[in-house]
Design a protein around this nucleic acid. Structure first.
Lengths: 197, 197
DNA sequence: AACGATACGGAGCACTGTTCCGTTTTGTCA
DNA sequence: TGACAAAACGGAACAGTGCTCCGTATCGTT
């Protein structure tokens, strides 16, 4: 359902040279276009910038979500791996959770339009699925640790929290009167068992 | 910039009879289509259901936001008017705020797609503007009262809070693992000065 | 009844996503 | 090296949007 054959970075797998070259070109072009115009940029624009035809882009990345996933795979991976590390390093599970959430929020607000793509209503099911598959377990671990330490109230699931955070980060990021980080902070605070120091 | 001449409900103002009739038909049709297909339904569908042409719909409601505003005017108004009433009736300003937020959330989750339209990134600036113009002052009053009573921490603006709530309510509503109300509750709890009873 | 103002309708344009298939490139094998 | 089949390419073509434009019909008034 997702990316057919791990269209990751370097050696995709035993295919023709031109195919590999084009796949790489598409990844590069998509990354550029995404920062310039957001993840909703016209398919044609990406194809044109990569110097390939429409057929090629759809052959390599059947859905837009596949392309987005491929482009941001590294960062999602980094975010996933940061979870256990923070848990080990931070002074408390809740602090680890807070740190991880900061990372996640940074990631989302940095990529124009990513947060809205993350919600499930669009045609980005694959993206939604991948993000959640990879990150929900990490978040769940952090949440569980914090709950185990008695730092937060139970009852909120990792999926719910992540989607809430994603939602809070959606919309134009250049609004001086709307700071997603502040609201996410409030959300986390609402999760705490006792008030802040 | 918004609705040219208050395309409200009954007597719009000194215009031709057929124009009034069509405006009414459009409002009715739009309301029906909105519940069936969300506020993003194709313009043609609304026009067809109202039995009018494309030109007519655009003449009466230059932007989609104008139409949405006209359709939901009553409910927005009711929500706005509930603010002062709750403030007078509720046992405390914070409870009033909580009650009002519940109303707002109910409104948003009930109208498929309204919450996403509320964010500023789409072409719904007029909708965004109207909602905010009408409801932000109300929210600000509630927020101010609660802050004055020492029930919440200062520093969060009404606009920010409302947009956050709107964001939390966006996305498909039929997901059993995502309850906007719960998260909004968490947000409110994060706003409180001391923890819940 | 006639006539000017007002409003109507829908064809048409621009711009999307997506598919389809004739053509080109690549790698291999004689 | 020179076929040749498989793999991949490219972009025209189709379908579904939003929105505009202007010839035509309707309304209200004189």
């Amino acid at each position: 359902m997702a990316a057919a054959d791990q269209p990751g970075k370097a050696p995709a797998r035993s295919k023709r040279a031109d195919a590999l070259r084009n796949q790489q070109a598409l990844l590069t072009a998509a990354a550029e276009v995404f920062v310039a115009s957001g993840v909703d940029a016209p398919v044609r624009e990406i194809a044109a910038r990569a110097g390939v035809g429409m057929g090629t882009i759809y052959r390599h990345f059947p859905t837009r979500a596949d392309l987005v996933v491929a482009v941001y795979r590294h960062q999602v991976e980094a975010c996933a791996e940061a979870g256990p590390r923070l848990l080990a390093e931070a002074p408390s599970p809740f602090e680890a959770l807070r740190g991880w959430v900061d990372l996640f929020v940074d990631f989302l607000v940095t990529k124009h339009g990513l947060a809205e793509a993350l919600r499930s209503d669009g045609g980005f099911e694959a993206l939604h699925a991948y993000f959640l598959e990879r990150l929900v377990p990490v978040c769940a671990e952090l949440l569980g640790a914090a709950a185990g330490a008695g730092e937060i109230r139970p009852g909120t699931g990792a999926y719910e929290l992540m989607r809430g955070i994603g939602n809070l980060c959606a919309g134009r990021g250049d609004d001086p009167d709307y700071d997603p980080r502040r609201l996410v902070g409030l959300l986390l605070r609402g999760l705490r068992r006792s008030p802040e120091a």
